[in-house]
Amino acid sequence: MKRHLLSAADLDRDEALLILDTAGEMRSLADRPIKKSPALRGRTVVNLFFEDSTRTRISFEAAGKRLSADVINFSAKGSSLSKGESLKDTALTLEAMGADAVVIRHSASGAPHRLANSGWVRSSVVNAGDGTHEHPTQALLDAFTMRRHLGDLDGRRIAIVGDVLHSRVARSNALLLATLGAEVTLVAPPTLLPVGVETWPVTTSYDLDATLPKSDAVMMLRVQRERMNAAFFPSAREYSRRYGLDARRMGLLDAHAIVMHPGPMIRGMEISADVADSERSVIVEQVTNGVAVRMAVLYLLLSGSGEAPETSENNTTAGTEALA
């Protein structure tokens, strides 16, 4: 892993697996009497959220705190950001406060990249969702959840259904799952597939009923009305009928297949309430796993010296320790 986590494409297979395996150990911390490790004692993690978020911000906050980091939450509302301060000036403020990591969510695609590569801050930058671009820790927690239920993802078939056009989750998942060897099918109406999707490592389909029987996991995406400035489909009802997951469609899935949703979900739109609450749904577990995965990411980015791995003095191999 580099110094930052900006895109799921930054991770090669070994790095991704290291994060997922580390997350597995982090998850067991939650079952212990003291749900805390001293690994990031004295480190400062700033959650810089320019966009509303419930689970991602809380998840990063919990992750940082369980690793004993000092966590500072910084949201656009109620800060100088709402007075018109620029990203640069905010970054310089964070730098002056000595942040070791900045977890950033921003409505503009590329904001985390700008923060990481501008020279404004020396800290590690973690992308917690930028515009319609990427959300790498969501992809990691999705992969982690799938691995717990399906085992090795090599050759597994994953369907990602719905508003792919506006979904940073879909893009990060497509990239990471391809790295892990899974076969991804994007299912959406033509209007909700992004331009250039043919360059993604995925296949596409307009037919949900045909895709479900051969899927090991189906991930439903929220229709992001707030990002829609045009009519992408005739009506909510028609969308729901063609691309929503209801009990009948769930019946088409294989017995072992799981149902996922990154949240927040709109019950009755892309997913029906009985499906969301069914045995196959791992939506609540995704949230639990999110904390463990973000602990692994923060731990691997921040716990070490930040230098390149040693090779000669010790017998440890460079490959397995190529992190941070």
């Binding site: 395996d21 490790s37 731990y299 070490g304 040693e310 397995t320």
Partner: peptide, 16 residues
Amino acid sequence: MYRDDLRLRPARGLEH
């Protein structure tokens, strides 16, 4: 995660 040289060396994955 409890080592005293944790931050003197590159980050390491965890054992079980």
